[in-house]
Simulated scan of single mutants.
Amino acid sequence: MPLRNNIIGCINFIAVLFSIPIIGAGIWLTTGTVNSCFMLLQWPVIILGILILLVGLAGLIGGFWRITWLLVVYLIAMLALIVLLGVLVGFIYMVTLRGSGRPQPSRAYLEYSLEDFSGFLRRRVHRSYKWERIRSCLSTTSICPDLNQRFTLAQDFFNAYLSPIQSGCCKPPTKCGYTFVNATYWISPISLHM
């Protein structure tokens, strides 16, 4: 029995050590030196790191000093963390399940539409304050500007395999009929007919 407690203590010592960089990463995200996309993750990362630290400390102390009630608390907390992570993965899967993209004629990339995703995700993105956060997040990255450097000709762009974010956020939907100028600048079909 003492060997088993020492093994539990050692495993949790490693968990405590791993929680320190997780908390550090969350604190680094709060400094504002990173773009706004990653700043959305600051509090979830800090909370996750603190939870791992607390659970690891409970297992470490309970394992080395053979405190039975603390080991029970550790096991319940570990089970709760595993269940919460499982629920989170399931939730993300269910929200994004239908958003697989559709092929378009004469295009190598897939076309993504918000209507393909769950109602929960559509309601979240349609809110104006949420969309402003997403837009400001994208404007601070090089996701869309990199397309301008990679593709100068329309046919090269149409034959490219784009990521879902590049296809859904950096260009207008194909069905709208915009004319390609560069990867992030398109001319409206309405302005062509005026």
Score class of each variant (00 low, 15 high):
Ile20Arg: 06
Gly168Val: 05
Gly63Pro: 07
Phe38Pro: 01
Ile67Phe: 09
Leu81Tyr: 03
Pro103Asp: 11
Asp156Leu: 07
Leu192His: 11
Leu114Thr: 00
Leu114Ser: 03
Ser100Val: 09
Lys171Leu: 12
Ile82Trp: 10
Ile50Pro: 02
Trp28Tyr: 13
Leu41Cys: 09
Val45Asn: 06
Leu29Ile: 06
Asn5Ser: 15
Tyr74Thr: 09
Gly24Ile: 00
Ala160His: 03
Gly101Lys: 02
Cys169Asp: 04
Thr152Met: 04
Ser118Phe: 14
Phe120Gln: 04
Leu17Asn: 03
Ser139Pro: 00
Glu111Phe: 02
Leu53Pro: 04
Leu79Ser: 15
Asn12Pro: 10
Leu114Trp: 05
Leu85Lys: 00
Lys171Val: 14
Thr152Pro: 00
Ile20His: 01
Cys137Glu: 01
Ile82Met: 14
Phe38Asp: 10
Arg127Cys: 00
Gly119Cys: 06
Ser128Thr: 07
Leu110His: 02
Val181Ala: 10
Ile47Glu: 03
Tyr129Gly: 04
Asp156His: 12
Leu79Arg: 09
Ile11Trp: 04
Gly101Tyr: 01
Ile134Val: 08
Thr31Gln: 06
Ile134Phe: 02
Asn12Tyr: 03
Ser36Phe: 08
Met78Tyr: 10
Ile46Thr: 01
Ile20Tyr: 00
Leu79Gln: 10
Tyr74Ile: 11
Thr140Glu: 12
Asn159Arg: 12
Gly101Glu: 01
Leu3Val: 13
Asp146Gly: 15
Ile61Phe: 07
Pro189Gln: 14
Gly24Trp: 00
Gly90Lys: 02
Ile27Ala: 05
Tyr178Arg: 08
Leu60Phe: 07
Ile27Gln: 06
Ile165Ala: 08
Phe38Gln: 12
Val95Thr: 13
Asn12Asp: 04
Asn148Arg: 14
Arg124Ala: 11
Asn159Ala: 14
Gly119Trp: 09
Gly86Phe: 04
Leu70Arg: 07
Cys144Ile: 13
Ser106Asp: 15
Ile143Pro: 00
Val73Asn: 00
Gly63Phe: 03
Pro173Val: 13
Leu85His: 04
Cys37Met: 14
Phe158Glu: 15
Ala77Trp: 05
Asp146Arg: 15
Tyr74Ser: 09
Val89Asn: 04
Ile22Val: 15
